[in-house]
Amino acid sequence: MDRRSRQRITEGCIKGILFICASLSILTTIGIIGILIFETVEFFREVSFFEFLTDPQWTPLFVDKHFGIMSLVCGTALVAFIAMLVAIPLGLLSAVYLSEYASARFREVVKPLLEILAGVPTVVYGYFALLFVTPLLQVLIPGLAGFNALAPGIVMGIMILPMVSSLSEDAMYAVPMDLKEGAYALGATRFQVAVKVVIPAALSGIMSSFVLAVSRAIGETMIVTIASGQQPRLTLNPLVPIETITAYIVQVSLGDTPSGTLEYRTIFAAGMTLFVFTLALNLMSHWLKERFREEYR
């Protein structure tokens, strides 16, 4: 065999191996979605879609079974909302500081440090919420339950803060200097340049960082499993125990629910709901990016 045909065979093999690697991840995704859809369809054979959306109670593991996903959705939304209340203002302000005020050296040191926050294992955050933040808040807010939505929400906000600040800062830093100079030359202060020129010009990046952070908050599991209790409740009160979709899935997965039963299938229906939400948010973030991409030049 001459060199050329040997080369051709090697090239062919490499191409095949790379193709298999690439298809593996795609097949896995398809498999996951397939199982989700299959089990969800099975679930809806026994429970009506209407009940799923409108029943105020979620009690699949009790004798008196109710399948109202809204109480889980509500818990999830509540914790994510509290997290965003923490992460958006703090993240945006630190991004403004890093991109417009801080010296290059300070930025180089602080940005990676902030990003470390995202690397702390979530189980540590969970215990931090349960054993440190909740007792602290109980001093300030009498009547706060030992498990609640507030403490995990705040801690989750801290966890996703670097996501907001880092992505927003990237977007702001990418705003061309000549645009900023145009404002400075009119006599704008640093703050005016940041608020009226840099933030509007970087809006698409900033918005998509918010959306990614929300979808991270919605999918976050460990903090809420540990610190928010396991009581599905249709409430917007942050001071009482609630349960999120993710925490419910953990609860059933770890329990002794036999597979193939209706109780078992609830986690797929819940998982599907979660999947729909995060998919919608990711699409939204993608759309925002495209929509505002050519905002400046």
Partner: peptide, 24 residues
């Protein structure tokens, strides 16, 4: 005031570009 090498209008309307300086 200053005018730069590359035209650098803000990504806003014509009106708001000019009003910007007065508004600040």
């Amino acid at each position: 005031g200053m005018v730069f090498q590359k035209p650098n209008p803000f990504p806003k309307s014509i009106y708001n570009n000019i009003a910007y300086g007065l508004r600040i």
